[in-house]
């Protein structure tokens, strides 16, 4: 595995996955403002430590913005409430709607930051191989990594096919209609090409004993210190306890 740039990057991938899960689900389980905002701040601090705060903030904003706009519009103007802030046509903007929208937004942001931090600091191969070391089948591990790793290849292939189709006069830019018309000639060759690749790759893998039953001895093991194991348990128990407390109406 290549050297990693920060101590957060170097955490065991499962620890980072548990942090992401606890952050995402915890924001919903806690409800209100304090829990989700605390998670937002915690994720921001971890991102700062990992040196990805700016990228993560930008990515999270971009990801949550479209949902945030619709949440704000729907909540502010359609949520029933007694305190009307202002009126636009038939719609009343209520303080209760604003409150609901704000709560939803801090939760959404917590989810986005949690998952984004995991994605930006974790090598997918390291994560899947760590899962394999913990007992996940090598075939499932391979499929998971191959799926993740196939994305850049498909994007590259789509670019090449797009260029060659454009060279033959296909209009793939301009109006939405023109773009839509341009999709079919791109999708066909991309899918057929990808299927051919899969067939060849599966033959190549067979010749490298991929179908052999039994476990593999991996060349490296991700570091997994005892405090990380404790942290994972703590976060998992904390998440369950928070959800239980919320269901019981204590928070």
């Amino acid at each position: 595995m290549p050297p990693t740039p920060s101590s957060y990057h170097r955490l065991n991938p499962l620890t980072k996955a548990v942090v992401a899960t606890a952050g995402s689900l915890g924001a919903f389980a806690a409800g209100g403002y304090i829990g989700p905002i605390a998670i937002d701040l915690a994720m921001a601090l971890l991102a700062l430590r990992a040196g990805v705060l700016c990228q993560l903030g930008r990515a999270s904003l971009l990801l949550t913005l479209p949902i945030a706009i619709s949440v704000v519009l729907v909540s502010v103007f359609t949520r029933a409430g007694t305190t009307v802030l202002f009126v636009i046509g038939p719609f009343d903007a209520t303080a209760e709607g604003v409150d609901f929208a704000a709560q939803t937004l801090v939760r959404l942001f917590a989810i986005s930051l949690s998952i984004g931090l995991f994605v930006m600091t974790t090598n997918p191969r390291a994560f899947v191989f760590d899962l394999e070391r913990r007992g996940v089948s090598p075939r499932i591990a391979f499929v998971a990594v191959a799926t993740i790793e196939a994305v850049p290849g498909l994007v590259e292939r789509a670019g090449v096919i797009g260029e060659s189709q454009r060279a033959r006069g296909l209009d793939t830019e301009g109006s939405a209609r023109a773009r839509l018309r341009g999709i079919l000639p791109l999708v066909g060759p991309m899918i057929i090409g990808a299927l051919t690749d899969v067939e060849e790759r599966s033959l190549a893998l067979e010749s490298r004993a991929f179908s052999r039953p039994g476990r593999r001895h991996l060349l490296w093991a991700m570091p997994d210190r005892s405090w990380e194991r404790w942290l994972r348990w703590l976060l998992s128990v904390g998440l369950v306890a928070t959800a239980a407390a919320r269901l019981a109406g204590w928070i």
């Binding site: 595995m1 290549p2 090598n123 191969r125 391979f142 990594v145 191959a146 790793e149 196939a150 290849g153 051919t196 690749d197 060849e200 790759r201 033959l203 190549a204 893998l205 067979e206 010749s207 490298r208 004993a209 052999r212």
Partner: peptide, 20 residues
Amino acid sequence: ATRVGIGFQNPATQLSGVTG
């Protein structure tokens, strides 16, 4: 696999795609 190996013409599709 341990007795005879096979290689095809396109190296890109013979690489596993899962290694760094």
